[in-house]
Simulated scan of single mutants.
Amino acid sequence: MCAISSFEFKVSIVIPVFNAEKFIERAVESALSQAETAEVILVEDGSEDDSYEVCQSLNENYERVQLYIHNGHINKGAGATRNLGIQKACFDYIAFLDADDFYLENRFKEAKKVLQSTADADGVYEAIGVHFESSSEKKIWINKKNKRLITTIEDGIDPDELFWEQSPIGSKGYTSLDGLTIKKESLKKVGVFNPSLRLHQDTELFMKLAMACNLYPGQVNKPVAMRGVHSDNRITKTRPVEDSITNYKKMLNSAYEWALANGYTKEAESLKYLIKYSRIHRTSAINYNRSLVNLKQYLKTLRETPTIALEGSFYINLLKFLLKYVWINVRK
């Protein structure tokens, strides 16, 4: 039974679990160590290993740990699994943690300050770091994936500008679910996660939140949580470029349809251009990313430039840099 005090900052931690038997206990204990954690909600997503048994043990040993499964104990994916956790949450604020990640000390210290001092704040985003389970994963992450050791927005951004400045529209970085603290009612306002997206549900959610809510920066210069990188998680997996672009385009389409349906016209226009671009471009991932940076500069002009006037110059310049990067690729 849910017992809520409106005078305290208490957080429901939602942890989706799939094939993470080695890491769940670490994640749960890091969440329970935070003074603001009112409950930890484990949603076991039909794992093929012993994750469910580990979750059962944690549920039995800790009063604040709750355990749920989908009907039939089937696998539904991270989006649907997090949605079930949100539905079951008893408290006004929600934070997320992947089962192979963990929180650092004072995870909610800055978030609590911002939320208590800023009347219109719906949520707070903060930085997360990387924890490598072995040296081989570190090599893949840095050398092959060209990833940073901290995931964050580069500097504090006004909530009204966040959609335009964060990835994938802007170039000032992106946020992670492990670093988000958000009002439960704000999540429901944007329709929570799209369960049809198997990848990039978090990116789509952040775009919707940036359009409809006021998200403020917390601790963005150093991590409040650590992402676990190991041989079994999707972060270290290499996918064909075509598959990556297809999944990305599906996410953009979902965000575009939501923006259009909810009256965010300029934001929908920017997403439309990004979708068209992903259909055209079929060169290497490196050149895709390089030319995407150029495209983002055009997207930012949508706030100031009438759509009709933009169309001609946009496609002329888009064609120019696409030809440039295709030519570079052909020469190689």
Rank of each mutant, 00 (worst) to 15 (best):
H73V: 10
N75L: 04
K76Q: 08
A78F: 00
R82Q: 11
L84G: 12
I86G: 08
Q87C: 02
A89E: 03
A89S: 15
C90Q: 09
D92E: 12
D92F: 08
I94E: 04
I94N: 06
L97D: 00
D98Q: 13
A99I: 03
D101C: 13
Y103I: 01
E105Y: 00
N106A: 08
F108T: 00
F108Q: 04
K109C: 06
V114I: 15
V114K: 15
L115Q: 09
L115F: 04
Q116K: 14
S117P: 02
S117Y: 00
A119D: 06
D120H: 09
D122S: 07
D122E: 01
D122Y: 00
G123P: 02
V124S: 01
V130M: 07
H131C: 03
F132I: 00
E133S: 11
E133Y: 14
S136M: 08
S136C: 04
E137N: 15
I140K: 15
I140A: 11
I142W: 10
N143I: 14
N143M: 15
K145E: 01
N146T: 07
K147V: 03
K147Q: 14
R148Y: 11
R148C: 06
L149W: 05
L149G: 11
T151E: 12
G156P: 02
G156E: 03
I157S: 04
P159T: 07
E165T: 10
Q166K: 10
S167I: 11
I169L: 12
S171D: 12
K172I: 01
